[in-house]
Design a binder for these strands. Structure first.
Lengths: 186, 186
DNA sequence: TTACATAGTTTTGTAAGCTAAACATAAGTT
DNA sequence: AACTTATGTTTAGCTTACAAAACTATGTAA
């Protein structure tokens, strides 16, 4: 697969990120995380989890004695928090700034969270905070944006994406928000 | 792998999306696309391309007679345009709204393009257009945003992501923008 | 027409990340 | 202690997507 070079010591595959996030969330929700819990949360088999955890153990991110609960080591907890915060920022942006519905925001954030640079996260936070400023002019502008909807039926090329609107705005993913069961996707 | 259910007939793997985009771009750039061109653009071996094209042929997205140039069929061209426009919207948003530097915007857009719903794309377009409105109040607000940078050194939890700032804003991906060679990543 | 370089294909092998099923352990119940 | 159930591990096999290398076709040039 084509790879993306980030500093290796802090790079995690999407899969690893899901495991770390699941473990962290489970610890918050119920105080502990076990293989079965992780499997259920990620909607995959126990076997896959068991194998994946080995990798995380080898990288000193977690401790996992045979048949026992999973524990995040300091490195792993830092990583998990990074993953969590990245996800939270994206979801917040989609929901509160773009006004995407909760379920779809969750799904989209799940899909995008792994592939976003720290710089972009920073700027998203800026944008979120800006939208929430206690400032009359900003508030007014935000309100206008929230009332703003593009109504574009032209077959001209879109000035942004350089393709025509039917193409730029396909009605394809309408069936994407029919879950929201807490399952992590992809 | 955990999967994401979108209407199947219009769903492409990230890999397939890359191939479609590469073919489309090559046709625009030089009038035709051959296996070697695609391989070079995507920075992978010819063998991999040759195999992948078979899949696209089977799905009636392209025509590819043995040892000849690749041709997009109507279905494939539509798909390619969708991929292109999705990418363009994301890149535009990152660059022009968030102010991410060109190379990094390219890389980030490459990474995120495959995992974003049509709804989110629509709302991003709205935001982009809103930022470019010919309206004094909006212009003023946009200018303020462009001058706005969060300066947060607190160790308190971030109100957005609920984690402390060192965690929310790791300095990890600084080495991510050292290419921009036209190579598609991941 | 033969030879060679370029382009494309096929084959073999690898890695990640899953499933499914068989197997092992732990813990609670009677 | 023996049984049962829930939980965890292991094994075998699958799919996607790639690399590397061997092989095949095409076209140009002598």
């Amino acid at each position: 697969m084509l790879t993306f070079q980030i500093k290796k010591e802090f790079s995690f595959t999407p899969s690893e990120q899901h495991y770390l996030r699941a473990i962290y969330e489970l610890q918050e929700e119920q105080g502990y995380a076990r293989v079965t819990d992780v499997a259920r949360k990620l909607n995959i088999g126990k076997g896959a989890v068991s194998l994946a955890l080995k990798g995380l153990v080898e990288r000193d991110l977690i401790r996992h004695p045979h048949y026992q609960v999973i524990e995040l080591l300091p490195q792993g907890e830092m990583a998990a928090k990074q993953v969590m915060s990245r996800f939270a920022v994206l979801k917040h942006f989609l929901e509160r700034v773009l006004g995407i519905k909760k379920n779809m925001a969750y799904v989209d954030a799940c899909l995008m969270e792994h592939f976003i640079s720290g710089e972009t996260v920073d700027r998203l936070i800026d944008l979120i905070r800006f939208f929430e400023l206690e400032d009359d002019l900003v508030r007014e502008a935000v309100q206008r944006f929230q009332a703003y909807r593009r109504t574009c039926e032209s077959t001209e090329n879109c000035p942004i994406c350089e393709f025509s609107c039917e193409v730029a705005l396909p009605e394809l993913e309408n069936s994407a928000a029919d879950q929201g069961t807490g399952h992590t996707v992809r």
